[in-house]
Simulated assay, not measured.
Amino acid sequence: MNRTPTSRRRFLGLVSGLGLTAAAGGVLGGCARGGQDASEVVVSFNDLSQPFFVAMRRELEDEAGKLGVKVQVLDAQNNSSKQIADLEAAAVQGAKVVIVAPTDSKALATAADELAEQGVAVISVDRNIVGAKSPVPHVGADNVAGGRAMADWVVKTYPAGARVVVITNDPGSSSSIERVRGVHEGLTAGGANFKIVAEQTANSKRDQALTVTQNVLTSMHDTPPDVILCLNDDMAMGALEAVRAAGFSPDKIKVLGFDAIPEALARIKAGEMVASVEQNPGKQIRTALREAVAKIKTGAAPKSVSLTPVLITSANLAEASRISEVK
């Protein structure tokens, strides 16, 4: 794509700034060994402070080692402007494929279009990119099905109805939009006795979920909810802490999460938490990286891959380990 002198200067400035950030704070990290130049495959995670994406990065590093490739890892720090700038800089540096977990599903559309026009393939993981001129190949779990699985558990466990609190993850992300949709669809199918008595975001953060849950339980102390559905596990940890601090037992207010991180699985085993949705971050990022390498080596267009999420409870806890072993 031809760019104006002003645009080119902006791009070069971004590259320079990105290099400074990498040197000062370690935002860029080469992982694995061999193969391509480090700039050929770039992976941008929306927020590497979240345990889910820490796990995904670990799986990425392992798969890169097996494939003999190098990747650059970028942390958008949950900032769409930074992620867009990072991706533009990656293109100038010579990236051939960008794998991105978007901070915001719509905000990345223009950046994806610009990368495509420059011949850079884009693959999204975990969260879709919405609104691009051409659909962006996506590797991820069916988040609607995951949200519905949570709601189905509620309907099955409370056949007479339940009061439900929903704590949502990052606003604007496809994962949040789709998980909320699945929860609403499932509870609506259960009937009018299944009521969402509070729905609020905690931005995927444990401390914010703690505060949100404390406020909810304070306002509803005499008529507490039956279930708290947290749309990621880090928030579920905060909700569990608030429930315990308010004097409620795990049987009185049941907490479900999403992601099946090790801490959540340990809480399920201990009986402190009811369930978590396993969406296999390892298989997501490994599949995306394989698609990226195939694109570089053969020119094959990356394909979308949809994974089926599994609700992990104490009854099928061993299944979480089996899923995580799928490479």
Rank of each mutant, 00 (worst) to 15 (best):
N2F: 10
N2W: 06
N2Q: 12
S7D: 14
R10E: 15
L20V: 13
A22N: 08
A22M: 05
A23Q: 12
A23T: 10
G25T: 12
L28S: 10
S39K: 15
V41T: 03
V43R: 09
F45P: 05
F45D: 00
F53E: 00
L60A: 08
G65A: 12
K66M: 11
A76P: 01
Q77D: 12
Q83L: 07
D86C: 03
E88N: 14
Q93V: 07
Q93S: 11
V97Q: 03
A101M: 03
P102M: 09
A107K: 13
L108M: 15
D113S: 06
A121Q: 11
V122D: 02
S124Q: 03
N128L: 15
S134C: 02
G140W: 01
G146S: 14
A149E: 12
M150A: 04
A151S: 10
W153H: 10
V155Q: 12
Y158P: 10
Y158T: 07
P159Q: 02
G161C: 04
I167G: 01
T168Q: 06
T168H: 02
D170S: 12
R181T: 15
R181S: 15
G182P: 06
E185R: 13
G186F: 05
G190V: 06
N193D: 15
F194S: 04
E199S: 14
A202S: 08
N203G: 04
S204V: 04
T211P: 01
T213D: 09
S219I: 05
T223G: 09
T223M: 10
P225G: 09
I228V: 15
M237A: 12
A239G: 04
L240I: 11
L240P: 03
E241Y: 00
E241N: 05
A245K: 12
D251P: 03
K254Q: 14
V255N: 05
G257C: 07
E263P: 02
A264D: 05
L265N: 00
A266N: 14
R267A: 13
R267K: 13
R267D: 05
A270F: 10
G271H: 08
P281S: 11
P281A: 11
A294N: 14
K295R: 14
G299A: 02
P302K: 06
L307F: 14
T308D: 09
T308I: 10
V310S: 11
L311C: 01
I312E: 00
S314I: 09
S324V: 00
S324K: 05
E325R: 08
E325L: 09
